[in-house]
Simulated scan of single mutants.
Amino acid sequence: MNCELEHKIFSANPSNFDELALEVFEFQYQNNLLYRTYVDTLYTHKPSLKLAKDIPFLPIQFFKSHSIVSGSFEPELCFESSGTTGANTSRHFVKKAALYETSFFTCFEQFYGSVENWCVIGLLPSYLERKASSLVYMVEAMIKKSKHPKSGFYLYEHEKLAQVLSDLEAKGQPVLLFGVTFGLLDFAEKYQLPLKHTVIMETGGMKGRRTEMTRTQVHEELVAAFQTNAIHSEYGMTELLSQGYSKGDGVFHAAPWMRIAVREEEDPLSVKMNEKASGVINVIDLANLYSCSFIATDDAGRIHPDGSFEVLGRIDHSDVRGCSLMIAE
Rank of each mutant, 00 (worst) to 15 (best):
residue 325 L to K: 08
residue 132 A to T: 15
residue 101 E to A: 13
residue 103 S to H: 03
residue 88 N to I: 02
residue 242 S to F: 05
residue 213 M to D: 03
residue 1 M to D: 00
residue 260 I to F: 01
residue 5 L to C: 13
residue 147 K to Y: 05
residue 3 C to V: 11
residue 210 R to K: 14
residue 145 K to F: 03
residue 51 L to H: 12
residue 65 S to W: 06
residue 278 S to H: 03
residue 139 V to S: 10
residue 190 K to E: 12
residue 171 K to T: 13
residue 305 P to T: 06
residue 319 D to P: 07
residue 117 N to D: 15
residue 152 G to S: 11
residue 225 A to G: 07
residue 204 G to T: 04
residue 188 A to P: 03
residue 73 F to D: 04
residue 42 L to H: 04
residue 257 W to H: 14
residue 194 P to W: 00
residue 123 L to N: 05
residue 79 F to T: 03
residue 121 I to D: 09
residue 4 E to L: 11
residue 132 A to Q: 15
residue 78 C to V: 15
residue 175 V to A: 09
residue 266 E to H: 12
residue 106 T to H: 11
residue 47 P to D: 12
residue 210 R to A: 13
residue 263 R to T: 01
residue 131 K to P: 01
residue 142 M to T: 05
residue 210 R to H: 04
residue 80 E to R: 15
residue 35 Y to C: 00
residue 136 V to R: 08
residue 173 Q to E: 15
residue 278 S to K: 07
residue 156 Y to R: 14
residue 185 L to E: 11
residue 320 V to Q: 14
residue 214 T to S: 15
residue 147 K to H: 11
residue 163 Q to M: 11
residue 205 G to C: 03
residue 307 G to V: 07
residue 230 A to V: 09
residue 249 D to G: 14
residue 85 T to D: 01
residue 270 S to M: 00
residue 78 C to E: 15
residue 310 E to A: 03
residue 256 P to F: 05
residue 226 F to E: 12
residue 118 W to A: 09
residue 70 S to G: 05
residue 191 Y to G: 01
residue 216 T to I: 09
residue 179 G to C: 04
residue 108 F to P: 14
residue 23 E to Y: 01
residue 279 G to K: 04
residue 327 I to D: 13
residue 70 S to Y: 01
residue 50 K to Q: 12
residue 215 R to W: 07
residue 87 A to G: 08
residue 28 Q to G: 08
residue 137 Y to H: 15
residue 167 D to L: 13
residue 275 E to V: 04
residue 54 D to L: 05
residue 293 S to M: 11
residue 47 P to T: 12
residue 166 S to W: 06
residue 36 R to G: 05
residue 192 Q to L: 00
residue 308 S to R: 02
residue 36 R to D: 11
residue 321 R to W: 02
residue 137 Y to S: 09
residue 216 T to E: 09
residue 206 M to G: 09
residue 127 Y to V: 08
residue 52 A to P: 09
residue 221 E to A: 15
residue 172 G to N: 10
residue 108 F to D: 08
residue 78 C to G: 00
residue 160 K to P: 10
residue 292 C to K: 07
residue 149 P to K: 14
residue 288 N to D: 12
residue 30 Q to V: 11
residue 325 L to P: 14
residue 82 S to M: 04
residue 306 D to Q: 09
residue 72 S to T: 12
residue 84 T to M: 05
residue 4 E to R: 02
residue 270 S to G: 10
residue 246 S to V: 07
residue 274 N to V: 00
residue 299 D to F: 04
residue 210 R to Y: 08
residue 114 S to W: 07
residue 29 Y to W: 10
residue 198 T to K: 02
residue 253 H to Y: 10
residue 67 S to E: 15
residue 262 V to W: 06
residue 41 T to A: 12
residue 219 H to V: 06
